[in-house]
Design a protein around this nucleic acid. Structure first.
Length: 588
RNA sequence: GCCGAUGUAGCUUAAUGGUAAAGCGGUGGUUUUGUAAACCACUGACGGCAGUUCGAUUCUGCCCAUCGGCUCCA
């Protein structure tokens, strides 16, 4: 964004005004349309319409042309305050506006403001630019369905997305940025780097991990195990399929039956078991298996659980939202007194992971009691209070996401951004007083009394698949050295150096376990370098006659950085440091 | 699931109411190469099912899948 751009709020005002122009154009072209709302958003604006005939993307061109005309006519925006009664009369044929006016009246407003621009009038609190001519270059981007007031039980409207900037250069740059961001799409990079594939004909929505992609997964798992061992977790594993009676007891079946994979055992012709959609119930059964002393608490049980959820087709999104995914789950059973400390420890573990993977947290959300909740009012009040206090005490900023908690308890969600700035929930910490009740869990305290433990459900990656997807979009496939599926590519200049190249390869593997390949194909050096660059391999070692003679390697770092010839020992020493976690392991 | 768009070799794309063109890739050969694509040959595709038509990859309908949103994510 260049320096001549107005402050964001002014840009928003202009974009919101542009949304009005869009609505005005729609009114001219499709007079029977009903209008909903048209706010400015982060990168532009939208307007929701209820058309009497469906709109197609081709129609956007026509609308754009009409908008351009309105902008050219430089029509002033004029504000008027109306009484509720007059406003209702003015928007007689506009059902959605009627609802909005009624809502404002309910909130105690005696008057509402409307904005006029030519013959288009819209209910709106403003502000707007002074006239349509003040609106900069704009573009309509896409068409989408959107439910009225975000409620899928209400009518579906047609949303037109657009954007608008103060000058053509900014608009062009924005459109260019979107194109660039699309190149970092994890689905594209996954294909190019041969990380994974999808087979919609065989398992729509599920990931097939190829060796290089699975290598990444394994690194994520290794690091996770290392950190969780340090943090006092024990790892468990629970069955993939459980009887429905268990899912009923925990309440998952009641809440999520339509998303659970159903199993009928051979001796039963009916659906009597289900593939696990989460790991909690398994963890609870392990806890229930023996009696527990207060001395054991907090008991932290981790499980890298593969879960299945039959997400509806429109919800799928590459590896970021597949139907089968791996949760880095853990259930912490603890006393009420231990809750805050445990949550804080999980939070710092989250931040440690983000740092390790060089990812930036977008925002935190505290999600509160939903409609389908289980458990008493007292339990919920207490759980929400503890969560808020913990967040406040940790001094982190957070948003409240009302009514979006898990059905058994409130949760803290960590959101990360993908390449197109969409945010995704990754880590989550859920406080649960309800399941211990459901399953009659207890521990024995100092006085020999049975006491209910509190359960904390938590994930750090969230889903390993999702986390990796976000990671790919963040770094465009340029993984840090320790994580890269292939860390070093050795490129012999001629087939005379193949043996030397192989020797270096085994040295790298033996000393530091470096994932090394040799490209001894029948191709030119340039092409092999190009291939290694395209594969985003951190280091290339180019070896010809000269290098073999001097026992050196010619090092090229990913991104056209020729580091030049050096002794093999020197290269080993430098990458050895980058490989640090592994070396520690080997020494320990 | 809903709204809109899309579906041609392994990948990226082209053309067409009379069954399809190319680059990359793969295979074979020639070449032995010095920091982002050597040369030659071969190989290979119209998502599925109906309908309209003498004839459909092309038009229509349905299904499946994908993409952008919406909704949803225990």
């Amino acid at each position: 964004m260049n320096s001549s751009s107005p402050k964001p709020d002014q840009l928003s005002i202009m974009r919101h005004s542009c949304a009005h122009v869009l609505a005005a154009a729609v009114q001219k072209l499709y007079p029977n349309t009903k209008f909903a709302i048209g706010p400015a958003i982060d990168n532009g604006f939208y307007y929701d319409f209820d058309f009497d005939k469906p709109l197609s993307e081709n129609d956007l061109v026509k609308i754009e042309a009409k908008m351009a005309k309105i902008v050219k006519e430089d029509i002033p925006f004029e504000k008027k305050d109306l009484t509720i009664l007059k406003a209702k009369k003015l928007f007689t044929k506009q059902a959605y506006k009627q609802e909005l006016i009624a809502d404002l009246a309910k909130k105690g407003q005696k008057t509402v403001s409307v904005y006029l621009s030519g013959d288009f009038i819209d209910l709106c609190s403003g502000p707007h630019v002074s006239s349509t001519g003040k609106i900069g270059p704009f573009k309509l981007l896409s068409l989408a369905g959107a439910y009225w007031q975000g409620n899928e039980n209400k009518p579906q409207l047609t949303r037109v997305y657009g954007t608008c900037f103060t000058n053509q250069k900014d608009l062009d740059q924005y459109l260019f940025q979107i194109e660039e961001a699309k190149k970092r799409d994890h689905r594209l990079i996954g294909k190019k780097l041969d990380l994974f594939s999808f087979h919609p004909g065989a398992a729509p929505g599920d990931v097939f991990w190829h060796p290089k992609g699975y290598s990444l997964m394994k690194k994520l798992i290794d690091y996770w195990r290392e950190e969780h061992e340090k943090a006092g977790y024990q790892e468990v594993r629970t069955p993939e399929i459980l009887k429905n009676s268990v899912w009923e007891k925990s309440g998952h079946l009641q809440s999520f039956a339509d998303k659970m994979y159903r199993v009928a055992t051979p001796d039963s012709h009916d659906w009597n078991m289900s593939i696990k959609p989460m790991n909690c119930d398994g963890g609870i059964l392990i806890y229930q298996n023996s009696s527990h002393s207060y001395r054991e608490l907090p008991l932290r049980m981790g499980e890298l659980g593969v879960v299945h959820r039959y997400e509806t087709s429109g919800e799928l999104h590459g590896i970021i939202r597949p139907r089968e995914f791996t949760q880095d789950d853990a259930h912490i059973f603890c006393t009420k007194e231990q809750v805050k400390e445990e949550i804080k420890a999980v939070m710092s573990l989250c931040f440690k992971f983000y740092q390790k993977f060089e990812l930036e947290l977008d925002h935190l959300e505290l999600s509160t009691r939903p409609k389908n909740s289980i458990g008493s009012d007292e339990i919920w009040q207490e759980a929400e209070k503890v969560m808020e206090e913990t967040l406040r005490e940790s001094g982190v900023e957070y948003k409240i996401n009302k009514g979006d908690g898990a059905f058994y308890g409130p949760k803290i969600d960590f959101h990360l951004k993908d390449s197109l700035e969409r945010t995704w929930q990754c880590s989550t910490i859920q406080l649960d007083f309800a399941q211990p009740e459901n399953f009659n869990l207890y521990y024995v305290n100092e006085s020999g009394e049975k006491v209910r433990p509190v359960m904390i459900h938590r994930v750090i990656y969230g889903s390993l698949e999702r986390f990796l997807g976000i990671l790919i979009e963040g770094n465009g496939g340029n993984f840090p050295f320790w994580l890269a599926p292939t860390q070093v590519m050795i490129i012999p200049i001629t087939n005379q150096q193949t043996a030397y190249a192989q020797k270096i390869r085994s040295t790298l593997i033996k000393t530091y376990n470096i994932r090394t390949e040799v490209n001894d194909g029948n191709e030119t050096t340039s092409k092999k370098i190009r291939q290694a660059e395209e594969q985003k391999i951190p280091y290339m070692l180019i070896v010809g006659g000269r290098e073999e003679e001097g026992k050196t390697v010619n090092v090229r770092e990913r991104g056209e950085q020729v580091l030049g010839e050096m002794k093999l020992e020197k290269f080993l020493e430098s990458v050895g440091t980058e490989q640090a976690p592994l070396i520690q392991k080997r020494m320990g």
